[in-house]
Measured scan of single mutants.
Amino acid sequence: MQRVNMIMAESPGLITICLLGYLLSAECTVFLDHENANKILNRPKRYNSGKLEEFVQGNLERECMEEKCSFEEAREVFENTERTTEFWKQYVDGDQCESNPCLNGGSCKDDINSYECWCPFGFEGKNCELDVTCNIKNGRCEQFCKNSADNKVVCSCTEGYRLAENQKSCEPAVPFPCGRVSVSQTSKLTRAETVFPDVDYVNSTEAETILDNITQSTQSFNDFTRVVGGEDAKPGQFPWQVVLNGKVDAFCGGSIVNEKWIVTAAHCVETGVKITVVAGEHNIEETEHTEQKRNVIRIIPHHNYNAAINKYNHDIALLELDEPLVLNSYVTPICIADKEYTNIFLKFGSGYVSGWGRVFHKGRSALVLQYLRVPLVDRATCLRSTKFTIYNNMFCAGFHEGGRDSCQGDSGGPHVTEVEGTSFLTGIISWGEECAMKGKYGIYTKVSRYVNWIKEKTKLT
């Protein structure tokens, strides 16, 4: 034993070699072989497995989906700052455009905790909710729209109204504003409101030439003092309507412009014939205590009207009353817009006519005020429907199939267009061939041609 100890002390290297040989010859039971080890760690190889990531292109799944990435790591994937920024906006807080917040056709661009709407022409605001041009839906104005110097929408209202708090709607500024039905039992019968379409306001006024200088022999019209197929109006439903009495009662109609003036057809009036105007009328054979009678003290036909040349060209006249009318729910003026808007309103496509005229061709006159909704007829169809001249200051309205029309005794009465609950004068009943005849239409004086003249002559002093 002493000898062994001496050998170990003198030859430590020998001992180490012996131990190493023993270990190498022993069977290893701690580690699995290569094949079995792979069965336990069965993990798919990654895209760049075996390579240094710093030297390969980034992978979106590896960089940002398996674990949260930084902007720089995302930049490695896209290799483009702009594309990385677009991805980053949604990656950080989701897609803010998912709810489609942009209105009126706006395009949404996502941002971090926010979004941006790219608005089409005519709109602005956070969600493109603000109209900035009158060309689109009248700028959301209830009545009139004008573009300011910086191309912003400025709404306005006709006389007797003021802008509401929203700067879009119009509200009454006087007790009985024009064009409004205020009798409670008839307010439910107000005709369907007309909503502004998209309009090209630059070209809204037709490029028409008034044929002022045409000389033409007097034409022989049949029954051209021209509501057939209409309905009984309720008291106060058309408070701007008046009836004219002269040699015979209810020979023509008219509309209240203001307390002192009536507008009617020029062919209705004769110099030297006494005319009485009755406002607030409903049943011409009954006294309903809503009527107001006034005498006409002055007749002003349009300066281009000449019955000797043509009885229905420039067929418009103004009547001055001896005493002002007292405005109330049964006696209310009709609204008159400017030339541009009167023309736009007419193009809405349908209007209402009213009167006490004959209820059928050569038949009896109506006792109760009649009204009828009539569609506008395109000019080409209008011209083809008659052998008589249709001037540019006239328009056609009615039904091709016949059966409904204005008729004798309705002449001078109103053709009105309702705009968001307020009625505007767009025409004056003038003439036609018979009444409600198939293929024939009622012919009306186009008020847009005469609004400046009306307003100039009827100013209240």
Rank of each mutant, 00 (worst) to 15 (best):
R3A: 14
N5F: 13
I7L: 11
L14W: 14
L14S: 06
L14P: 13
T16E: 06
I17P: 02
I17G: 02
L19C: 10
Y22E: 04
T29H: 13
D33C: 04
D33G: 12
N36P: 14
N42R: 07
P44I: 14
Y47R: 05
F55E: 09
F55G: 06
V56R: 00
Q57G: 01
E67M: 00
K68R: 13
C69G: 00
C69A: 00
E72K: 05
E72A: 09
E73C: 00
E79C: 05
R83K: 08
F87D: 03
Y91I: 06
Y91D: 04
Q96L: 14
E98N: 13
L103Y: 12
S107H: 09
S114N: 10
N127R: 10
N135H: 11
I136W: 09
N138G: 06
F144Y: 09
F144T: 02
N147A: 13
S148Q: 12
G160A: 03
L163G: 02
A164T: 12
K168T: 06
P177Q: 01
V181H: 10
V183I: 13
Q185W: 14
T186N: 14
L189D: 15
R191L: 15
R191Q: 08
E193S: 13
D198H: 11
D200Y: 07
E208N: 14
D212Q: 11
D212W: 10
N213R: 08
T215F: 06
Q216N: 09
S217D: 11
F224N: 13
K234G: 10
P239R: 00
P239Y: 01
V242H: 00
G246H: 07
G254K: 00
I256W: 01
E259N: 07
H267N: 05
H267Y: 03
V269D: 02
T271F: 08
T271D: 06
A279G: 04
A279Q: 00
H282I: 09
N283Q: 09
E285K: 10
H289N: 15
K293H: 10
K293I: 07
I297W: 04
R298S: 09
N304P: 02
N306W: 04
H314Y: 08
D315C: 01
I316T: 00
A317Q: 00
L327I: 14
L327K: 04
D338L: 04
D338G: 08
K339H: 09
Y341D: 06
F348V: 15
Y352K: 02
Y352W: 05
A366S: 06
Y371S: 11
P375H: 14
A380D: 14
K387G: 09
I390D: 10
F399V: 13
F424G: 00
L425S: 00
L425V: 01
G427E: 01
I429L: 14
G432T: 13
E433D: 15
C435D: 04
Y441L: 10
Y441A: 06
T445E: 03
K457V: 10
L460P: 10
